[in-house]
């Protein structure tokens, strides 16, 4: 085990912090106070710990912190907050896509990762993008409808 100072950005804020070589990004983010990133299965099954690294969703539980040195991380709180919600966050609230809320940060991150690459996804593309997020409350239907509604609103109601 070694320690070194790692510089990276979280939600547009620079961090320089000393991290041991075996520490995961999930552990580091939560220790820094980004507790909107949830610790679920720690196996890459549930997606609760998903964050964007340079715009692409990854499971932070499977990622060693040293490997994201110099990169830009976005957690769900970096997308928006209750005063100024991201359109996805607003759509989730409107559609009742949140029950206990534990999976929600990861689901929104996975959705945002999809929409950055595919602004007007098909229904199948939405389902495929969310295949790595487990939700035990909603049965997924309302989550799917929330993402779909946001896509429809943004594309002016054009269905693919």
């Amino acid at each position: 085990m070694r320690e070194k100072a790692i510089v990276f950005e979280v939600n547009e804020r620079q961090h320089c912090t000393t991290i041991p070589s075996h520490r995961t990004l999930l552990e580091v983010l939560r220790a820094l106070g980004y507790v909107d990133v949830k610790c679920g299965c720690e196996k890459g099954d549930c997606g609760a710990c998903a964050v964007l690294v340079d715009g692409e969703a990854i499971d932070s539980c499977l990622t060693l912190a040293w490997t994201v040195e110099g990169r830009a991380i976005t957690t769900v709180a970096g997308l928006g907050n209750s005063n100024n919600p991201h359109p996805l966050q607003a759509a989730f609230a409107r559609n009742g896509a949140i029950q206990c809320g534990f999976c929600t940060p990861g689901v929104i991150i996975a959705s945002e990762s999809l929409l950055r690459k595919t602004p007007n996804p098909s229904d199948d593309e939405i389902r495929f993008a969310l295949s790595g997020n487990l939700c035990r409350c909603t049965g997924y239907t309302k989550i799917f409808e929330a993402v779909r509604e946001m896509v429809l609103t943004r594309s002016g109601g054009v269905l693919r």
Partner: peptide, 12 residues
């Protein structure tokens, strides 16, 4: 690849 794990795992 289309039936491989979930998005976050496929990305890495």
């Amino acid at each position: 690849a289309e039936v491989f794990a979930g998005q976050m795992v496929r990305n890495v």
